[in-house]
Amino acid sequence: MGKSARELGKTGGRDGCPDIWQLDNGDIAVIGRDLTDAYRAKLPEDASIAPDERLAVIPGATLSAAKPDIPDARA
């Protein structure tokens, strides 16, 4: 979805991440920096990270570039 990390200049000298893409089943996958431990205690009260989950952080430019590929929510 959106532009590649290379197109956005967000590879940090490496090819690959960060990235967002849609899986065949419609789910969205995100590759980013694992900052679970850094943000776990800073989450809003109504948010939590399950033992089988990790909090990934991506540059805002990566999400903004994907915006045209993200469908509007359906009521």
Rank of each mutant, 00 (worst) to 15 (best):
L8W: 11
R33D: 09
G16S: 09
L55F: 11
I70K: 01
G13D: 14
T36N: 05
E45Y: 10
G9E: 06
A5C: 14
D34W: 04
R6P: 13
R33F: 11
P18C: 04
T11W: 05
A5L: 13
P44G: 04
G60L: 05
R6I: 14
D52L: 01
D27N: 11
R33W: 09
N25T: 03
P59W: 00
D69Y: 04
A50W: 04
D34N: 12
L43Q: 09
I31N: 12
E45S: 09
I70A: 04
I31V: 13
I20A: 07
N25W: 03
A38K: 12
A66W: 01
T11L: 11
S4N: 14
G13P: 09
W21V: 09
D27C: 02
C17L: 13
G16W: 07
I49A: 07
I70S: 00
D15S: 11
Y39G: 08
D27Y: 05
L43W: 08
A61C: 01
I58C: 07
S48L: 11
G13H: 14
D52P: 02
S64A: 06
A47W: 11
L63C: 02
I31Y: 14
G60V: 03
I31G: 13
Q22S: 11
A38R: 11
S48G: 15
C17F: 11
A47E: 14
P68F: 04
S4K: 12
V30I: 15
D72A: 08
G12A: 09
L35M: 14
A38S: 07
S48F: 10
I49E: 06
E53Y: 08
A50F: 07
G12Q: 10
P59N: 00
R6G: 14
P18H: 10
K42T: 10
I58Y: 04
S4E: 11
D37C: 06
P68G: 13
T62H: 04
P44H: 05
W21E: 06
D34K: 08
W21T: 07
R33P: 01
A56W: 01
C17A: 13
A38W: 12
G12V: 12
D24I: 11
A38Y: 10
G2E: 12
L35W: 13
R40D: 13
E53M: 00
M1L: 15
D69A: 01
A41P: 02
R74V: 10
M1P: 15
P44W: 07
K10L: 15
G9H: 10
D69S: 04
P71T: 05
S64L: 06
G2F: 10
L8E: 14
R74F: 01
L63D: 00
